[in-house]
């Protein structure tokens, strides 16, 4: 048995918690158009003051790494300590690094 999805397209939702902060992925919603997508995102994810910024983007427009590519995409970073910024002293008072 197959079921047809009649709820519109899938959109990914990104929320910015404070001005200047990066947008973080919050989840996904269904919607038929852009206006509806941003409103559904607002009603689903930001009802309790979670954000000051909101992005939605159609899930199909997100380019992602395929599971079988994971190895050569991510592993090479692990054995090179100089790629990690651990040799710097962080000034006091810097909170978002």
């Amino acid at each position: 048995m197959s079921t047809t999805d009649t709820q519109g397209e899938l959109w990914e939702v990104f929320i910015q918690s404070k001005a200047g902060q990066p947008f973080k992925h919050a989840g996904a919603i269904h919607a038929y158009d852009r206006e509806m997508a941003i409103e559904n995102a607002r009603d689903t994810y930001t009802r309790r003051g979670e954000g000051t910024g909101l992005w939605v983007v159609k899930s199909k427009h997100i380019v992602s790494v395929q599971p079988n590519e994971e190895g050569y995409f991510f592993d090479p970073a692990n054995d090179k300590v100089y790629r990690h910024p651990t040799f710097y002293d962080m000034p006091e008072g810097v909170k978002n690094m």
Binding site: Q7, G8, I29, H30, A31, E39, N40, D43, T44, R47
Partner: peptide, 12 residues
């Protein structure tokens, strides 16, 4: 409502 998001929006 016809689907979940709309249900949330209406009850909001």
């Amino acid at each position: 409502a016809p689907f979940l998001e709309e249900d949330l929006a209406n009850t909001n």
